[in-house]
Design a protein around this nucleic acid. Structure first.
Length: 649
RNA sequence: GCCAACGUAGCUCAGUCGGUAGAGCACGGCUUUCGUAAAGCCGCGGUUGUGGGUUCGAAUCCCACCGUUGGCUCCA
């Protein structure tokens, strides 16, 4: 007698042990058909698992538990792809094939490179496997039984996986009968019942991946696929990828004429075109003003420095291969600076500082150069020359809390102005660190307390701190829900000592100040690259390089258009007019392509009464209003940094 | 840095089996003077990433380098 308790707490009794599939069948044939796996007392297992005792049983379907279901389908789909690849290339050695966000991959060791031309063949082979609706059969062996077999197979990766497995029993999955020569794979499972249940899939890409993520290990081929419960969801995902591509900052950077990179000048070095530079200018102006309001002082420091300063800072020792090679000047090595801190410290040390001078808040848009590995460069997001929005706060231990509050407030204000929400992380002491455990504990506690005073929810990133400091990391969530590395605030435990930075306390003795490194935007390059994608190129009015364009209906109203343009410019708006002899349709299309917030159409009717017909980005209706009204409305939106263009009156 | 793919006009792309390079947009000129997402015609524009090699002949095949893309590793 087996008593099964279902999720709704109802129970069913069966005379003899039975599989989870049979339990589902007893409930409804439809459920049995939809069953992908089952939770027995909370543990996820195959539907073929025999249930021979009283258990809580929960049948997993795409409806009952979509997250688990799709994850299982993807994992099983990875196996189907692996089988397909093995059929096409029998010398393939399988390594590891998990599900990942939006799909799955399988790492394989195969001397012949897989290329995108192979994908159709792989997909065709997968289709055959799916059509044959073969069951995923699990069988288990003890470690003693399994190891000789694995050794005989000559697949060092599977052998390695097996050796690392905790359990005494190893499980295999085959799409035939155990031992009949069908495809099989060492795998923890569980899997969906059969190859027909892996959903709609597509082989996406192939890339290199080090075995076990270790750069000294062999480079494997990682074949990526995506899979979804239905064809419709697959198509929706592929469509979404196309849409994301249109928001790619590199694509928009060209389309909107924002920036370029030139291989004859150097990879990873951004050239800001007028439109991009204008956006940067607005961001920088905003940044500076908000800092000045909060008691920061601005600094400018040099771009190169003698090697002595980087020996002192420890950068040469730790990051020499990430720095541009030195230039020999008068027998002395000079480096492009990879960061700004030592320069700020130098300024600090030009005077004896009293506790009465603190806290000092110094900020700089400091341009630094780092020789990033070539394979990591990516548009504006990962570059070799960039401008950090850097700041250092020098304060007494008593002031630390208040200073952290100020930093979090500034961060919050700036992020919400750009329309970002964010998540906070507290990164604690890493394995390799400098300083004492007590110092780390105290500094971490201060950061934690500041987060809590602000009422910020945060996750602890255990061991995620830098070697000299615990930190608060902020991850931005953009309009597509993607996370970006955002602001970071570090309480430095080493710099004061290393650079002999001190202040005179009320006790007339020297003390070490606390130094907070922090950045809000990260770098102008990465932040604005991110902004481009966040807004999809449709910038809010205050950031738009061109805020409005006057579009005369024909040459006859060019003169009126010019007078409107002059009025707008006098009012401080960035605008132009389109006096090409194209028709109005073409002018509108062009303005749309540049994602301008406002188009102002003018013809004889408008010229009569000093008005413009406004067309707002993203909206087909038009409104006729007086030029002065438009100006007032636009100015208000600019002043409030309104995120979406509109009309105020 | 590692693996793979890719690199053709300012941009987006075509170019078959190796036979001296093509379109659309952009740009210039002309016609048109127009009411809400592309008017028409004509024209300009290329050492096919760079350097070698194979060949009677290379965008096409081979090698090296540079760069880009997708990942991996890394990101003070």
């Amino acid at each position: 007698m087996v008593r099964i308790t279902l999720p709704d707490n109802s129970t069913r009794s069966f005379d003899s042990p039975l599989t989870a599939f049979e339990v589902a069948q007893a409930i409804s044939p439809r459920l049995a058909q939809d069953a992908l796996a089952v939770r027995v007392d909370g543990q996820l297992v195959d539907t073929k698992t025999l249930i021979d005792k009283d258990h809580h049983v929960e049948i997993v379907t795409t409806k009952s538990d979509p997250t688990t279901a799709v994850d299982l389908m993807r994992h099983s789909c990875a196996h189907v792809m692996a089988e397909a690849i093995c059929r096409l290339f029998p010398e393939t050695k399988l390594v590891y094939g998990p599900s990942v966000e939006n799909g799955f991959y399988y790492d394989i060791d195969l001397d012949r490179p897989i290329t995108p031309e192979d994908f159709p063949a792989i997909e065709a082979e997968m289709a055959k496997i799916v059509a044959s609706d073969k069951p995923f059969c699990r069988y288990e062996m003890t470690r003693e039984e399994a190891m000789p077999r694995l050794k005989a197979e000559g697949n060092r990766y599977k052998l390695d996986n097996a050796e690392r497995a905790q359990s005494d029993v190893l499980s295999f999955y085959t799409t035939g009968q155990p031992g009949d020569g069908s495809f099989e794979d060492l795998c923890r499972g569980p899997h969906v019942p059969s190859t027909a249940k892996v959903g709609a899939y597509k082989v996406m890409s192939v890339a290199g991946a080090y075995y076990r993520g270790d750069a000294s290990e062999k480079m494997l081929q990682r074949v990526y696929g995506t899979s979804w419960p239905t064809k419709k969801e697959l198509d929706a995902y592929l469509f979404q990828l196309e849409e994301a591509k249109k928001r790619d900052h590199r694509v928009l950077g060209k389309q909107l004429d924002l920036f370029s990179v030139h291989d004859h000048i150097g990879p990873g070095l951004i050239h800001w075109h007028p439109n991009g530079a204008l956006i940067r200018h607005e961001v920088e102006t905003f940044w500076k003003n908000e800092h000045l309001k909060r008691g920061y002082d601005l600094l400018y420091t040099p771009h190169i420095a003698s090697e002595r300063v980087f020996q002192l800072s420890g950068h040469l020792e730790k990051y020499a291969d990430m720095m541009y090679s030195p230039m020999d000047l008068d027998g002395q090595n000079y480096y492009l600076k990879p960061m700004n801190c030592p320069f700020h410290y130098a300024i600090y040390k030009t005077a004896v500082r009293s506790y009465k001078d603190l806290a000092l808040r110094w900020c700089e848009l400091g341009t630094v150069y780092r020789y990033e590995p070539s394979g990591t460069l990516h548009g504006m997001l990962r570059v070799r020359g960039f401008t950090q929005d850097d700041a250092h706060t020098f304060c007494t231990p008593e002031q630390l809390g208040a200073e952290l509050d100020l930093i979090l407030e500034l961060m919050h204000y700036m992020m919400t102005t750009f329309g970002y929400t964010y998540k906070a992380y507290l990164a604690t002491r890493p394995e390799k660190y400098l300083g004492t455990e007590e110092e780390w504990e105290r500094a971490t506690q201060e950061l934690r307390a500041a987060l809590e005073r602000r009422g910020l929810e945060y996750e602890v990133d255990e061991g995620g701190g830098v070697f000299y400091a615990p930190k608060i990391d902020i991850k931005l969530i953009d309009s597509l829900g993607r996370e970006w590395q955002g602001p970071t605030h570090q309480v430095d435990l080493q710099a004061a000592k290393r650079f002999k930075i001190s202040y005179v306390g009320a006790d007339n003795h020297e003390h070490e100040p606390i130094i907070i490194h922090r950045t809000v935007l990260g770098s102008m390059e990465r932040f604005i690259g991110g902004l481009i994608e966040h807004f999809g190129g449709a910038f809010p009015l205050w950031l738009s390089p061109e805020q409005a364009r006057v579009l005369p209906i024909s040459e006859k109203t060019n003169e009126y258009a010019a007078s409107v343009l002059q009025k707008l410019r006098n009012a401080g708006l960035r605008c132009s007019m389109d006096i090409s002899d194209d028709k109005i349709n073409a002018k509108i299309k062009r303005a749309h392509e540049m994602k301008l917030p406002y188009m102002l159409v003018v013809g004889p009717a408008e010229a009569q009464n000093d008005s413009v017909t406004v067309r707002i980005r993203g909206c087909k209706e038009q409104r006729n209003i007086k030029v002065d009204e438009f100006i007032a409305s636009a100015q208000q939106d600019i002043n409030t940094r309104c995120l979406e263009p509109g009309l105020k009156s």
